[in-house]
Write a protein that binds this DNA or RNA. Sequence first.
DNA 1: GCTATTTGACCTTA
DNA 2: TAAGGTCAAATAGC
Length: 309
Amino acid sequence: MEGFWPENLVSTNFIQKKVNDELVAGQELAKQLRNVLAKSDDDPRSAEDLMMQIVKSFSNTLSILNFEEGHDVASVISQIQTDLPCLDARKMKDHSRESFRRSTTTPTKKDRRAFYDRRRTSSLRTWNIDTPTLINDGQTWRKYGQKVILNAKYPRHYFRCTYKYDQGCKATKQIQRIQVNPPLYRTTYFGNHTCRNLHQDPELILDCTSPSDTSIFISFDSTNLINKQDHVPFLSSLSSIKQEIKEDIITCDANHSFQTFSSSDNFMFPDLAAFPSPAEAMAVLSSTLDQSDYGDAMYGMTEYDNFLS
DNA sequence: GCTATTTGACCTTA
DNA sequence: TAAGGTCAAATAGC
């Protein structure tokens, strides 16, 4: 491992400290979000910003945990630390909200120039997350493009908010695989969601969108450890996202068969704040997956890896 | 028939 | 002019 982090720092203790920091930060953010949600007159953007930070925190933790010692964990941590300032809540409040440029009339191909907004000149806030698995931020996305990038082994996938045209939400994201072994995916977000996702629930969602990964829900209510699939209508949106990825994969490689999961494969995370230490929390989280789920998840990741390789 | 995805073409920027 | 981002017609799936 080269570069920023000295070799001796990337020790088990160091990684444990980083995991601890991420979990503590996530716990604190979760508490803040709970307070925000408790006040109905609060700016809904505050809740969204906090939610994104929480997702980021747990994603970072998972990134760290999924890198075996000796692999390039330092680069992940370095990336995380580079990204963190972008997630500072104080900085997130003032990001610009550009007006919706698309006109109500359907432009011809010649008219595209009228509403085309190239990313690099945009003032939209951007940040990225590197994860060993695909993550779900709880929003609904629609894929609108795929592009082979120069000097990149894997194509870049482009997603926009499902409600772009309904509500003028300008949030987009890009997903690109950047590494095979260990698997690493870079998700780059552009702009905040300005939509009101009708399918979204106050509960935070942290879902792996790999084709057959099980969904993970973080509940703020420690008594709420049941599978709420049958009671939460917004779960249909998650199925939609999974379907997007699955179909994308199947289209690209018909030789691979993927196991699809019913929504009942979702399970609930216990309340992380209830655990005395992050290590115990993670141990419980790991054990929350029963053998079949774990096997299915691993199967799915393996198949997806094979496809992307 | 509706909705989402694919993919070639188009557009902007460096 | 090359590269990357987006559009939209064609296509597929439900």
